[in-house]
């Protein structure tokens, strides 16, 4: 069994991170069910399997820091602390959704929680996230912009433009490449030349490393290392997360491009189970406490589901509001 990794988190904090991972997992499973039941429409990209990434990064975030990501954003907005019932009500397209039912699965934002979307065009969030970092620096704030980017977007031109600008202007931004091995149905080795994706940022003078994205503790430690580097050097940083999504690219993807064996092998290294084991064995957290967390989350998800289905459709006049301010 893995040894206890030294860090400054209390057991209570660790339980909080476990709770977050478990929440994301159960939320996404419920979203999958509601999609199957026809309650959620359109595109719906689930985060199941990748929870350690967003939670490990969360462990390094200050509340004033900003976050931006792509369309696979449910886990990211939940990690930022937005109430899951408003997120689920957005997925069901209801009035109480975080975007009032006008954004959908891919377009959720919360200024109060410093979450800047939720962007549906592959790669577009990367220059935007660099812009958030620009604003932090411009205003002399000690904030970091965290930008999530998938392996598929790592072949998109604007990502390189953003790397160049971030490094050229010494902006406080952490790029987190969530390499889940497939850009939709195309494996990374069929789409990206070269060895490692993060090296595409290091050529711009951005320090970077590749991390086991299936382990909360490894992600957390790297995230803290990256944060401190950004604080000390006022320069960007890149972390490539080796991770995996258990489900297809979206709900409509049968994922026939990969073998059952591959999926099962990755599932045997499940980030939630492995964190639970570590909390039990290395941190001596009581099993009852962990079970309680799980029971409470399952209860919460039932309420979330109910809320998201009972919330009314948006008012008709919402069609024409918020085009302009």
């Amino acid at each position: 069994m893995a040894k206890k990794i030294s860090n400054s988190f209390t057991n209570k904090e660790l339980l909080g991170f476990y709770e977050k991972m478990f929440l994301i997992r159960k939320f996404e499973e419920k979203a999958g069910q509601l999609y199957g039941a026809g309650k959620i429409g359109g595109f719906c990209h689930l985060y199941i399997g990748q929870e350690a990434v967003v939670t490990g990064i969360l462990s390094s975030i200050q509340s004033e820091d900003t976050v931006v990501t792509s369309y696979r954003d449910h886990g990211h907005i939940l990690a930022r602390g937005v109430d899951p019932k408003f997120v689920m009500a957005e997925l069901t397209g209801r009035k109480d959704g975080i975007s009032k039912g006008k954004g959908g699965s891919m377009h959720m934002f919360s200024k109060a929680n410093r979450f800047y979307g939720g962007h549906g065009i592959v790669g577009a969030q990367v220059p935007i996230g660099v812009g958030l970092a620009f604003a932090h620096k411009y205003r002399g704030e000690k904030k970091i912009s965290r930008v999530y980017v998938g392996d598929g977007a790592m072949n998109n031109g604007q990502v390189f433009e953003a790397f160049n600008l971030a490094s050229l202007w010494n902006l406080p931004v952490l790029f987190i490449i969530e390499n889940n091995r497939y850009g939709m149905g195309t494996a990374v080795n069929r789409s990206a030349a070269g060895k490692e994706l993060y090296e595409r940022a290091t050529v711009f003078g951005i320090k970077g490393e590749k991390i086991n994205g299936m382990d909360f503790f490894e992600v957390s430690q790297a995230a803290i290392r990256a944060r401190d580097h950004i604080y000390e050097n006022s320069k960007p940083y890149v972390l490539e997360m080796d991770t995996y999504r258990y489900r297809g690219h979206s709900m409509s993807d049968p994922a026939t491009y990969r073998s059952k064996d591959e999926v099962n092998e990755m599932k045997s290294n499940d980030p939630i189970l492995s964190m639970k084991n570590k909390l039990l064995k290395d941190y001596k957290i009581n099993e009852d406490e962990l079970n309680n967390v799980e029971i409470n989350i399952k209860k919460q998800i039932k309420e979330v589901e109910k809320f998201s289905l009972e919330s009314p459709l948006p008012e008709i006049n919402e069609l024409f509001t918020e085009v302009y301010l």
Partner: peptide, 20 residues
Amino acid sequence: TPISEHGFTGLAIGAAMAGL
């Protein structure tokens, strides 16, 4: 800026989202 319209436009939009 560098000759990098896609990048610096996105950057400017991000800065505007943050209130600049």
